[in-house]
C-alpha cells in the first residue's frame, strides 16, 4: 500500500520560533519529545524544546506553531512516538514516513507581554476571582487560591491541600517580604502538582505574566536574576514546566493567558470574563492554575501599591488577604 505523504501547513506560529533552515545546528538530531492529544513537542539534541506543533483547539503558546488540520488529530499523531528522530526538509519537519509539517507560510504572532501597563482598577481582582469560581476546574491551584483568598472552597486532593499550604505562605510573604524575596521563594514552589506542567508552574507563569506587564521592577529583576532563578527551577520541575517558565520570564505567555493579563490591566469586566473563560478551558487544570496565578499577581500588586502608598505616608501596616 502506498500512502503518500501528508503535508500539514502551519497557519500561525509564535514569532520566536526559528525555522529549521535558519537555525542550523540546533535542529540536527531533533526528535519527538512527547505526543499529546493535540500537541507534539520537538526537542533538539541538546534536550532543549525547539518547537511545539499543535492543532486547534490548542491555544497558541510560546514556541508553538498551529497546524491546519480539521480531522482526527489523535489518530493522525498517535503513531508518532517519543524519541523518534525527525528529518528537516527545507523549512519543513518530516515527523515520519508520511507526515510532514511545513512552517514556512505561517503567520507570525507575537505573544510578548506588553508593558509596563497601567495599574488595574481594584474591581478587576474581584471579577477575576468570580471568574475563577465560575470557570475554574478542581484538582490544581484554583480552589487552593480561592480558599487562601477567603472563599469556602473545598480541598479534596492531597495536591490541593499542599498547594493551599504553599499559597498561604506565598501570600503572607507578599504582605511581609520584599519583591525579590517573593520571586525567589517561588523556586521552592515550582514542580508541585499533577501534570507535565505541574500546577505550581502554571500558577507561577500566570503570576509572572501579570507582574511583568505591570511592574518595571519585575522586568528588571527578570533581566538580572532570571537566569539564576531558572537554573534553580530546572532542578525542581519537569522538562515542559521549565520550558514554560523560561518563556514566561522571557516575557511570553500563551495567547489565552495574554488575553486575561491585558484584560486585567486595560480592559473591562466583560472582556475579562470572556478571557478568563477562555483561559480556564486550557488543559485539565493548567488554565485554572494560570488564572489563579494572575489573581495572586493582581492581589500582590494591590498589596504593594497600598504598601508603597503607605510607605510614602510613613504608615506601613501589614496587609490582609482580600
Amino acid at each position: 500500500m502506498s500512502e503518500g505523504s501528508l503535508v500539514l501547513q502551519a497557519t500561525e506560529r509564535e514569532e520566536g520560533i526559528r525555522l529549521p533552515s535558519a537555525a542550523g545546528g540546533r535542529w540536527a538530531g531533533a526528535y519527538i519529545h512527547s505526543v499529546y492529544k493535540s500537541t507534539i513537542n520537538i526537542a533538539g539534541k541538546d534536550g532543549q524544546l525547539l518547537l511545539s506543533l499543535a492543532v486547534r483547539p490548542a491555544i497558541l503558546a510560546p514556541g508553538m506553531a498551529i497546524l491546519d488540520w480539521e480531522g482526527d488529530f489523535t489518530g493522525l499523531f498517535s503513531p508518532h512516538k517519543p524519541c523518534n528522530q525527525i528529518r528537516i526538509v527545507g523549512s519543513s519537519l518530516q515527523l515520519s514516513e508520511w507526515l510532514i509539517c511545513d512552517l514556512s507560510a505561517a503567520r507570525l504572532v507575537s505573544l510578548a507581554i506588553p508593558g509596563p501597563m497601567a495599574a488595574a482598577p481594584p474591581e478587576r481582582l474581584a471579577e477575576l476571582t468570580e471568574a475563577l469560581r465560575r470557570f475554574g476546574k478542581p484538582g490544581g491551584a484554583g480552589r487552593p487560591w480561592l480558599r487562601a483568598a477567603g472563599w469556602p472552597a473545598p480541598l479534596e486532593t492531597l495536591h490541593e491541600r499542599a498547594l493551599y499550604s504553599q499559597l498561604m505562605k506565598l501570600a503572607l510573604l507578599a504582605r511581609s517580604g520584599g519583591e525579590r524575596e517573593l520571586y525567589g521563594a517561588l523556586t521552592g514552589f515550582a514542580g508541585l502538582g499533577i501534570g507535565l506542567t505541574p500546577s505550581a508552574d502554571d500558577f507561577i507563569t500566570g503570576f509572572f505574566g501579570i507582574m511583568l506587564a505591570a511592574r518595571p521592577e519585575c522586568r528588571q529583576w527578570a533581566e538580572h536574576c532570571g537566569a539564576g532563578w531558572l537554573a534553580r527551577v530546572q532542578a525542581r520541575t519537569t522538562f515542559l514546566g521549565y520550558e514554560m517558565l523560561r518563556q514566561a520570564l522571557a516575557g511570553k505567555v500563551n495567547r489565552a493567558a495574554l488575553a486575561v493579563i491585558t484584560a486585567c490591566l486595560e480592559g473591562d469586566g466583560r472582556r475579562l470574563e470572556a478571557a478568563a473563560c477562555g483561559l480556564a478551558a486550557l488543559g485539565s487544570t493548567s488554565g485554572t492554575d494560570m488564572l489563579a496565578g494572575i489573581a495572586f499577581g493582581l492581589d500582590t500588586l494591590y498589596v504593594w501599591k497600598r504598601r508603597e502608598s503607605n510607605a510614602d505616608q510613613n504608615c506601613h501596616s501589614e496587609e490582609r488577604l482580600p
Partner: peptide, 15 residues
C-alpha cells in the same frame, strides 16, 4: 486511602 499520581519533582516527593 490515598492515591497520588504525579511527576517526580522534589515538591511532589516532599508531598
Amino acid at each position: 486511602e490515598e492515591a497520588v499520581v504525579s511527576m517526580g519533582t522534589p515538591m511532589n516527593k516532599e508531598l
